[in-house]
Design a protein around this nucleic acid. Structure first.
Ligand SMILES: Cc1cc2nc3c(=O)[nH]c(=O)nc-3n(C[C@H](O)[C@H](O)[C@H](O)COP(=O)(O)OP(=O)(O)OC[C@H]3O[C@@H](n4cnc5c(N)ncnc54)[C@H](O)[C@@H]3O)c2cc1C
Length: 467
DNA sequence: TAAAAGTTAAG
DNA sequence: TTAACTTTT
C-alpha cells in the first residue's frame, strides 16, 4: 500500500495539476494536505484580503475533493514540523508538490526536504524556472530577449493538458483542523472556486479575447480577463489557459487579441523567472545606482497616496478600488505606480509593500516586476522620463468618466470636462457641483508640471552620480 | 505600456 | 492656425 501526500500550496486545482497527477501514479492512498503556515498567513508580507480568498478557495477545493471520494487535510504550523508529522501519521512514503520559485518557498522546501521525501513538480509557470537561459548560461534580464528565447523552445501543447481525475484514492484516517474564517469578505468580483475560474476563462475566450488588444487598457478593467487571483493561487493552470488561447491564433478575427493576451502570460512568466534568478530584486533595485539613494518623497505623500487623497481623480479612484476590492486594472496599476515613484518620488518598495498587502492577486514576482518596471529601476524598465500624466490617462482610458465616478462619489456632479482635473473648476462650478476643492475633494498634492520637472531632475542626478 | 517640446507644411 | 511628424526628456 503506497500512501502519498499531495501538498497543496499555490495549486488549488484538480485540472491540469502535474503534482497531483504525479502523486496519483503511485498512490493507493492520497493525502491532500494544506498547511496553514503562520509565516505566510500572519507574517509581514501577509494579507487579510488574500487570506480571505485563499480560505474560501480551500473550502471549495475540499468540496471538489469530497465529490471525488477524497477530502482536504488541513494542519496549522510550520511546514518543517507539520510535514514530518503527517508523513508519520499516514505512513506516506512520498510528498509531491508543485514547485514555487519565491524566495521564502524555496527556503521552506529545502528545510522540509531535509526531513521528508519531497518531490517538486512544475506547474506554476509555462516552462521550468531557470530553464530559459542565454547561450552564456545567464538568465535573461530583458523581456524581448526572454520572449525570443522562449519561443525557440517547444511551446505547451494541448496534448499535455491533464484532465481532472474523476475519482480519487481514499484518504487515511487523519485529523484535520478547520479552515479558518476570514474577518474580511472575498471581493465579489472573484468567486473563489476552480469552477468559477474555468468559467471566467471560457467567457473571456468567447467574449473578450478577440478585442483584448484594443480594450485591455480600459481603466475599469472590463477589457482584460480578470483571472489574476486564479493564476496567483493556481485555481487555473497557466499552461491550460495558454493552450486554450493559442487556438485562436488561427482565427483572423481573434488572432491579434490572442497574440496580445499570450504576450501578457509571457510577462508573467518573465517576472517569475526573473525573481527566481535574482531573489534579491525583491528588496533592492536591479539598477545599482538606485540601491543606496534616499528617495526624497515624504511619508505624508505616501499616506495620501495610500488613502486615495492625492487630488488626482484617476489616482484616487484606483487607490480606493484597490483598498475596497483588492484589484485594479493593469493600466491603473501603472498610473499609480508612476505617480508614487516619479511624481511623488517615494521609494518604489513602499508602493510594492502596500500593493502586496492589498491585492488579492498580490504576488511577489509580478508585483516587484511591475514596480521596478514602473519606477524605472528594473533592468528592462520604463525609462526614467516616461512619466504618466494622470489627467491625460483619464481622458484616454476612462473616456466617459464612469470608472472615476464609481470610486469617487464626491465627484458625482462634477462636469465631464473637469472630471480628471477638478481643481480647474471655477468656484461657481464647484459650488454647483457640490464639490469644493480643498473641502469636499482634496486639492492636488503636487502641481503636475513642476512635479514632473522635479522627477526628471532627480532621476537625471541619480544616474549621473553613478556614471 | 509617455508626454512635452520642437519642426514642418498645408491651409 | 493647426495637424502631423520628429526629437528630447
Ligand atoms: C505596479 C504593478 C504591480 C503589479 N502587481 C501584480 C501582482 O501583484 N500580481 C499580479 O498577478 N499581477 C500584477 N501586476 C500585473 C498586472 O497588472 C495584473 O496581472 C493584471 O492587471 C491582472 O488583470 P487580468 O487578470 O485581467 O490580466 P490580463 O490582462 O487578462 O492578463 C492575463 C494574465 O497575465 C498575467 N499578467 C498580465 N499582465 C501582467 C504583467 N504586466 N506582469 C505580470 N503578469 C501579468 C496575469 O496573471 C493575468 O491574470 C502588476 C502590474 C503593475 C504595473
Amino acid at each position: 500500500m503506497t500512501t502519498v501526500v499531495w501538498w497543496v500550496r499555490r495549486d488549488l486545482r484538480l485540472h491540469d495539476n502535474q503534482a497531483l497527477a504525479a502523486a496519483l501514479t503511485r498512490a493507493r492512498e492520497l493525502v491532500p494536505l494544506f498547511v496553514l503556515d503562520p509565516a505566510l498567513l500572519a507574517g509581514p508580507t501577509s494579507s487579510q484580503r488574500r487570506n480571505a480568498f485563499l480560505f474560501a478557495a480551500l473550502r471549495s477545493l475540499d468540496a471538489a475533493l469530497r465529490r471525488r471520494g477524497s477530502r482536504l487535510i488541513v494542519r496549522a504550523g510550520r511546514p518543517e514540523q507539520v510535514l514530518p508529522t503527517v508523513v508519520r501519521e499516514s505512513g506516506a512514503t512520498l510528498v509531491m508538490a508543485e514547485a514555487d520559485g519565491s524566495p521564502y518557498a524555496r527556503r521552506r522546501d529545502e528545510a522540509v526536504a531535509r526531513s521528508v521525501p519531497l518531490q517538486l513538480v512544475e506547474g506554476s509557470t509555462l516552462r521550468p524556472l531557470g530553464s530559459i537561459r542565454a547561450p552564456t548560461g545567464e538568465p535573461y534580464r530583458v523581456y524581448s530577449q526572454f520572449r525570443r528565447a522562449w519561443f525557440r523552445l517547444p511551446i505547451p501543447s494541448p496534448q499535455d493538458i491533464l484532465p481532472a481525475p474523476p475519482r480519487l484514492p481514499p484518504v487515511p484516517r487523519l485529523a484535520s483542523e478547520p479552515i479558518p474564517e476570514s474577518p474580511l469578505a472575498v471581493p465579489e468580483r472573484f468567486a473563489p472556486s476552480e469552477d468559477a475560474a474555468r468559467q471566467r476563462l471560457q467567457h473571456f475566450l468567447a467574449q473578450g479575447l478577440a478585442s483584448y488588444h484594443l480594450r485591455r487598457n480600459a481603466l475599469d478593467g472590463s477589457g482584460s480577463s480578470q483571472l489574476s487571483p486564479y493564476f496567483r493561487f493556481g485555481l487555473l493552470s497557466v499552461r491550460e489557459a495558454w493552450c486554450a488561447a493559442a487556438r485562436y491564433l488561427d482565427e483572423p478575427d481573434a488572432a491579434a487579441g490572442a497574440r496580445a493576451w499570450l504576450d501578457e502570460l509571457l510577462w508573467r512568466e518573465f517576472y517569475q523567472h526573473l525573481l527566481a534568478a535574482w531573489p534579491e530584486s525583491a528588496r533592492m533595485s536591479m539598477q545599482p545606482e538606485f540601491r543606496d539613494v534616499a528617495w526624497p518623497g515624504s511619508n505624508d505623500a505616501l499616506a495620501r497616496w495610500q488613502e486615495g487623497r492625492t487630488g488626482f481623480p484617476v489616482v484616487d479612484a484606483a487607490m480606493r478600488q484597490l483598498v475596497s476590492e483588492g484589484w485594479m486594472s493593469n493600466r491603473a496599476r501603472m498610473i499609480v505606480a508612476s505617480f508614487l515613484s516619479k511624481l511623488l518620488l517615494v521609494d518604489w518598495r513602499e508602493g510594492e509593500r502596500f500593493f502586496r498587502r492589498e491585492l488579492v492577486d498580490g504576488d511577489l514576482a509580478a508585483n516587484v516586476g511591475g514596480w521596478q518596471w514602473s519606477a524605472g529601476t528594473g533592468t528592462d524598465a520604463a525609462p526614467y522620463f516616461r512619466i504618466f500624466n494622470p489627467v491625460l490617462q483619464g481622458e484616454q482610458h476612462d473616456p466617459n468618466g464612469s470608472w472615476v465616478r464609481t470610486w469617487l462619489p464626491e465627484l458625482a456632479n462634477v462636469p465631464r470636462e473637469y472630471l480628471f482635473a477638478p481643481w480647474r473648476m471655477p468656484i461657481e462650478v464647484q459650488l454647483r457641483a457640490g464639490c469644493r476643492i480643498g473641502h469636499d475633494y482634496p486639492a492636488p498634492i503636487v502641481e503636475y508640471e513642476s512635479a514632473r520637472a522635479r522627477a526628471l531632475e532627480w532621476f537625471r542626478s541619480v544616474r549621473q552620480a553613478q556614471s
